[in-house]
Measured scan of single mutants.
Amino acid sequence: MATADDFKLIRDIHSTGGRRQVFGSREQKPFEDLVDLGWLKRSSVDSRATHYQITERGTSAAL
Rank of each mutant, 00 (worst) to 15 (best):
H14F: 14
R26G: 12
A61H: 04
T59C: 11
F23C: 12
R11T: 07
W39S: 01
M1C: 15
Q21K: 14
G18L: 02
A4T: 09
H51C: 15
I13F: 03
D6T: 05
S43V: 15
I54F: 01
A62Y: 03
E27V: 07
D5L: 10
R11E: 05
G38A: 04
S60D: 12
R42T: 06
H14Y: 15
S44A: 13
H14I: 06
A4Y: 10
L63S: 06
Q53I: 14
L63N: 07
S44I: 12
T50P: 05
S15E: 12
R19T: 13
P30K: 09
K41S: 12
G58K: 00
F7M: 07
T59D: 04
A62N: 02
L9S: 02
T59V: 15
H51V: 15
R48N: 15
W39E: 00
G24E: 08
D36Q: 14
A61M: 08
R20W: 07
K29A: 08
R57G: 07
R42N: 04
G18I: 02
G58Q: 01
I10W: 01
T50Y: 09
G18C: 03
A61D: 02
A49E: 10
L40D: 00
G38E: 04
Q53T: 12
P30M: 07
T59A: 08
E27M: 09
K29L: 07
L9A: 03
L40V: 05
H14A: 10
I54W: 00
S25G: 09
G58P: 01
K41E: 14
S43P: 04
R20M: 08
S25W: 11
G17K: 05
V22R: 03
R57S: 13
D5H: 09
H14Q: 09
L37P: 00
L37E: 02
A49Y: 12
S25I: 12
M1K: 13
M1H: 13
I54G: 00
L40F: 00
H51A: 10
G58N: 00
G24Y: 07
T59K: 11
L37K: 06
S47I: 10
T16F: 06
R26H: 15
M1Q: 13
L9N: 04
T3E: 04
R48P: 07
L40G: 00
A62Q: 02
D6F: 06
R11A: 08
A62W: 02
R48K: 13
V35R: 03
T55H: 01
G17F: 04
K8S: 08
T16V: 06
F31Q: 01
D46E: 09
D12N: 08
S15G: 09
E56Y: 08
L40K: 00
Q28T: 10
H14C: 10
D36K: 15
S44L: 13
W39Y: 03
L40H: 01
E56R: 09
I54S: 02
T50A: 11
F31Y: 15
L63Q: 07
V22I: 08
L40W: 00
K8C: 10
R11Q: 09
M1D: 09
V45N: 08
D36H: 13
S43L: 15
D36M: 14
P30V: 07
S44T: 10
F31R: 00
A49R: 08
W39C: 02
F23H: 10
L34H: 00
Q53F: 10
A4G: 08
T55F: 01
W39A: 00
G17P: 02
V45W: 11
G18F: 02
T59P: 01
G17A: 05
T59M: 12
L9G: 02
R19A: 11
Y52I: 01
A2W: 06
F23N: 09
Y52F: 04
R19Q: 12
H51S: 13
D12V: 08
K29I: 07
R57C: 13
W39N: 00
G38K: 05
T59W: 06
T59N: 07
K29Q: 11
G24D: 11
K29N: 05
L40C: 03
S15Q: 13
A61Q: 04
K8I: 11
T50N: 07
T16L: 07
Q21V: 15
A62K: 01
K29S: 07
L63R: 07
D46T: 13
E32G: 05
Q53C: 09
I10C: 02
D46N: 11
F23M: 13
S60P: 02
P30T: 05
A49H: 09
F31K: 01
K8H: 08
V22G: 03
G17S: 06
L9R: 05
G38R: 04
R11Y: 10
R20D: 02
L34N: 01
S25V: 13
T50G: 05
L9Y: 03
A49C: 14
D5V: 07
D12Y: 10
S60G: 08
F7S: 03
V22P: 03
R57N: 09
I13Y: 01
V35W: 03
T3L: 05
K8Y: 08
G58D: 01
T55W: 00
A2R: 04
L40A: 02
T3C: 07
D5G: 10
D46H: 08
L37M: 07
D46Y: 04
H51K: 08
S15K: 12
G17E: 05
V22M: 04
S15H: 11
S60L: 15
F23R: 10
R42D: 03
A61T: 04
G17V: 03
H51P: 02
R20P: 04
R48V: 14
R20I: 13
L40Q: 00
W39G: 01
Q53M: 12
Q53L: 10
A2F: 06
T3M: 05
E32Y: 04
V35L: 05
A2H: 05
R20T: 08
I54H: 00
I54T: 03
T16A: 11
T16R: 09
G38I: 02
G18D: 03
R42C: 07
A61R: 03
S43I: 15
T55K: 01
A2D: 03
L9V: 03
I54Q: 02
V35T: 04
H14T: 03
T3I: 04
R11F: 10
S43R: 09
R26D: 15
K29V: 06
D46P: 05
F23W: 09
D12S: 12
R19W: 14
T59F: 06
R26L: 14
S15N: 13
L40P: 00
F7P: 01
G24A: 08
R19F: 14
S47D: 14
G38D: 04
E27D: 13
E27G: 10
L9E: 02
L9C: 05
D12F: 10
G24F: 09
A61C: 06
H14N: 06
Y52S: 01
Q21F: 10
D46I: 06
A61I: 08
F31I: 03
V45G: 09
S44G: 10
D5T: 07
F7Y: 14
R11V: 12
